[in-house]
Write a protein that binds this DNA or RNA. Structure first.
Length: 513
DNA sequence: CGGATTTGACCGGCGC
DNA sequence: GCGCCGGTCAAATCCG
């Protein structure tokens, strides 16, 4: 099933980015003429009236466009909801069949498990769940802390569960929906998909965990004050070594991630004529975070930014999204065994730590585990063409996404937007986000998160669903649903914000342990 | 003049 | 042991 997305012209996008918050604010487009009439009555001279009439005409025309757009979006939304419902129905059927099979196979008193637990029993099952669930229905694993902003949202009575990943229990991303009505629905912004590539040095990951901290990495020998700090120190060393690489189409020398960086070196690395620049975080004098910036050899418009380490200071709000991502990725890469020999096994092993695997499954046509890197590295490729519906089990060469020619600007810009430095960036560069998050856009991840939740929540409400639970569909459903999701760019944007935020929280939680 | 950038030198890891 | 390579240092330079 396809969700058709009309790609408007850039000019229209800009206009819409401005108009949508307005609509979201007033809630009803019909209120606008009243505003204009009262405004016109204040004009006294004829020329002024004429001018005002022209303005009025233009405004009305614009309103017409906006209304049309709104209708399109509504249609799109209802389509998505109906698709979800049919999938959910299908899933319930499959669950029933699975339960029957389970009771037959395990005759000695195997109670019919709840759907979520049932899915969790299936080893290495790629799971995806999307829908509302009754309050109190909880997933095991990484529930968001009740102290967070989302915790109160859980009390609102409707929770929205969004899960996708390996269903070995708790890998699914769980999103508690906020009762937020600011988000105004879908956007027709263009966009395709991203690639989340997890590459982990299987040998180094496990070996380093066993090695003494002082011998585990170059950074350890240089930076560690003492070798006897214990497990915490070891974890820190590991986290420092873990890297998060972001590939994004970007014209600027560096990606505007909201942090302050100081360049301390530049090298021509082998195999790439483009020099690699080394930056150090200067927000705090002792911050260990570094980043490497290099342009892709095949496509110089693609900027590859690799982050290493975790910030030891308060971050500017604009930098929290990216920092959360790197922190979470580092935590994931260092939190458990990385001795798995396959993508599925590795992701499954990490799935209970972070929903990152979920992102991989959803966005990743080229999800794979590589052992080439000297350090465990997560590569977030936001330059790939439309994500083909692959399940997590489908590993394809990373190069497939690497060589992308058609770059989904909206998606990459969307990422840049919520990781970027200025709120206005949303409306300008990412119509999807600018629209989605309304007029009062903010770079605070919590707000983006809430907006994403709201979007998802609306989708489920419109469908009249409200049922379901924290259930994980079987792998057979994943492809179809993933396709539906990846066809909707604004959904991707919302999801990206939510995932990034949840990843950050998961990573922070993992770091605290 | 102070901070940021540039750039050659240096260092450690790794493979042969 | 040697050379290659990636990463870092620090003096020189640039720039606001």
């Amino acid at each position: 099933m396809e969700v058709a997305v009309e790609r408007p012209t850039p000019v229209k996008e800009e206009k819409r980015a401005d108009a949508k918050p307005e609509m979201a604010a007033i809630g009803n487009a019909s209120a606008l003429p009243i505003v204009f009439e009262s405004f016109a009555s204040t004009q006294s001279d004829a020329a002024g009236i004429k001018q005002e009439e022209r303005t009025l005409e233009a405004a009305k025309a614009e309103m017409g466009e906006v209304r049309e757009e709104n209708e399109r979006l509504k249609t799109m939304l209802s389509r998505i909801v109906s698709q979800y419902q049919s999938l959910h129905t299908h899933f319930l059927d499959v669950v029933k069949v699975h339960e029957k099979a389970a009771t037959k196979a395990k005759l000695p008193a195997t109670p019919p498990a709840p759907a979520a637990a049932d899915a969790e029993d299936a080893d290495d099952l790629v799971s995806l769940s999307l829908g509302t669930r009754p309050n109190g229905a909880r997933r095991k694993g990484h529930e968001r802390s009740s102290s967070s902003s989302g915790g109160t949202a859980a009390d609102e009575g409707h929770q929205l569960s969004l899960g996708l990943g390996i269903a070995r229990g708790s890998g699914a991303l769980s999103v508690a929906s906020a009762d937020d009505d600011k988000a105004s629905g879908a956007s027709a912004a263009p966009g395709t998909g991203g690639v989340l590539n997890l590459s982990s040095d299987s040998s180094s990951g496990a070996d380093d965990a066993a090695k003494p901290a002082a011998a585990s990495s170059p950074g350890a020998t240089r930076k560690s004050p003492s070798a006897g700090e214990g497990a915490d120190d070891e974890v820190q060393q590991q986290a420092k070594k873990a890297r998060v690489s972001v590939r994004v189409k970007c014209d600027t020398p560096t990606m505007p991630d909201g942090c302050q960086w100081r360049k301390y070196g530049q090298k021509i690395s082998k195999g790439n004529p483009c020099p690699r620049a080394y930056y150090r975080c200067t927000v705090a004098p002792q911050c260990p975070v570094r980043k490497q910036v290099q342009r892709c050899a095949e496509d110089t418009t693609i900027l590859i930014t690799t982050y290493e380490g975790q910030h030891n200071h308060q971050l500017p709000p604009a930098a929290t999204a990216m920092a959360s991502t790197t922190s979470a990725a580092a935590a994931m890469l260092t939190s458990g065994s990385t001795t798995s020999s396959s993508a599925a096994a590795s992701l499954a092993a990490h799935a209970h730590h972070l929903p990152l695997a979920a992102a991989a499954g959803m966005f990743g046509p080229t999800t794979m585990v590589s052992t080439a890197a000297s350090c465990p590295t997560i590569t977030l490729d936001l330059t790939a063409p439309a994500a083909q519906p692959h399940s997590l089990m489908h590993s394809s060469p990373y190069a497939a996404g690497y060589e992308s020619k058609a770059v989904p600007a909206a998606w990459s810009n969307g990422y840049m937007a919520y990781g970027g430095a200025h709120p206005s960036y949303y409306a300008k560069s990412s119509p999807a986000l600018g629209h989605l998050f309304g007029g009062g856009v903010s770079s605070r991840p919590e707000q983006l998160y809430a907006a994403a939740q709201s979007y998802l929540q609306r989708a489920s409400r419109l469908g009249g669903g409200g049922h379901g639970g924290a259930v994980a569909p079987p792998a057979a459903v994943t492809d179809t649903l993933a396709k539906a999701i990846t066809s909707d760019p604004s959904f991707q944007s919302a999801l990206a914000a939510a995932i990034t935020t949840v990843m950050g929280r998961g990573g922070a939680a993992a770091a605290q342990k």
